[in-house]
Design a protein around this nucleic acid. Structure first.
Lengths: 238, 238
DNA sequence: TTTAACGGTGTACAAAATACACTATTAAAA
DNA sequence: TTTTAATAGTGTATTTTGTACACCGTTAAA
């Protein structure tokens, strides 16, 4: 079959906003860009979409290249298509965001990229329109996590209620009453209490929980209310 | 500055899912495709992204080409990038959805395209992956309209409470108690009651309302609760 | 044995959502 | 002129959900 004639073909890229949570702060993983323009500057991990791969495949490939991880939470965020966003050549970029368990990230894989985790509040200046990508991703996560249990993707298989609360508090930059938080979370039926305790952060120790995967999949798409004051999300874009 | 060498350039298209409401049924506007492949078959309005226009500009251009409308609600939906979605040539397509006042749509403009409105429940078979685009758009509208007052974009400047309720009922394919509906809607502060009545659908007549634009912009991004049972949105993707 | 630091729980009150039924209006028909 | 039929408009009681708030438990280290 003939091709579409007379149409301009463009470069299409994928950029990944990779989120991690270290138990205290929400972070993103950035690399030092290895080629011009902006070589050596902090950047999202990205790459060009190849002719024989879908966007989802491209984003998974790029995520794996940097982190070694497969099968993690990766969602298409938005496609950025301003004409001059890349000064070298017209490039449209589809941003994806990933939520990973920061402990599964294997440092040695990323040596090539000089990757580093940055707290969301103290990210360096990013190239092109990537600051906007990160802002969009933050808003999307806030929006979505208010209604769906996506934040569990940032935690290890076993986690404590105080850890989970810290995560919500850092995503929404707020404080939550722990009695109400635990009521709300336990009421979802998503949590299985283990007998083991995490003794690293207190003498008494906090019970570990794990996700009830059956309920997790069943309720993932329903509108649960995970945060108390949704109006604190005023700037959300979706 | 040099271009990125050795990278494949791809075709990038924009497709528009154009929603309208005729007072009774939610509809989308489709055209008969004018070129191969799939020439003559029902399709979304779309076009290729030009090298000197952004994605937003491209989608606005395409929407205007078909409807003559500018400045209407148009939001990027999702980018579809499967390798073989267009059998003729690898083409990535960013879908946008538009919410328009169906009465402002000017038929003569679209003569070239043989456009027709189809009720969402009885759309013809669409080309490529456009059925998936429409499904994604339906889900996004349901998701977003549950929390934000976007559905007003589908109504004329003056509308009645029964019309508005019909609209919500057709978007969610459900019935809503009119006492609770009116309480909920009026409580938002978005509605200004006019003295004039619409007498076309009942002997008694229903009061017209118009949007309180100040409150509309102020509250647009806040999480309002427009529909009673958010759990009926189980299949929502966002 | 005391201290300090974090973990875990319950209750009363307020707000919001829900279920539910009758009267009002008026043009057209009898 | 009266009746009918079709749609518009409104209020209250109950249930559910959200919110505010304080004390005791545990245990390692001092």
């Amino acid at each position: 079959m003939q091709k579409y004639s007379k149409q301009t073909r463009l470069l299409l890229a994928v950029d990944c906003i990779i989120f991690g949570f270290d138990g205290d702060t929400l972070k993103i993983l950035l690399i030092k860009r290895g080629f011009q323009p902006e070589k050596g500057n902090w950047s999202l991990m990205g790459g060009f979409v190849q002719v024989d791969e879908s966007l989802d495949q491209a984003s998974n490939r790029i995520l794996k290249q940097l982190t070694g991880l497969e099968g993690v939470y990766l969602e298409q965020l938005y496609t950025f298509g301003d004409v001059n966003r890349d000064p070298k050549e017209r490039t449209v970029s589809t941003a994806y965001f990933a939520l990973i368990d920061i402990h599964k990230y294997e440092t040695q894989l990323s040596n090539d990229y000089h990757a580093e985790w940055f707290p969301l509040k103290r990210t360096p200046k990013l190239i092109f329109d990537q600051q906007e990508m990160v802002e969009t991703a933050k808003k999307r996560i806030r929006y979505k996590a208010a209604l769906h249990p996506i934040l569990f993707e940032l935690l290890p298989g076993k986690f404590t209620l105080p850890q989970l609360q810290m995560l919500y508090e850092s995503v929404y930059n707020t404080t939550i009453d722990k009695r109400n938080f635990s009521k709300r979370i336990l009421a979802t039926g998503l949590m299985i209490k283990l007998t083991e305790k995490d003794k690293t952060s207190s003498r008494r120790g906090a019970f570990y929980y794990q996700l009830n995967m059956k309920n997790y999949y069943a309720k993932f798409q329903s509108f649960l209310n995970f945060i108390p004051n949704p109006d604190s999300l005023l700037q959300a874009i979706y």
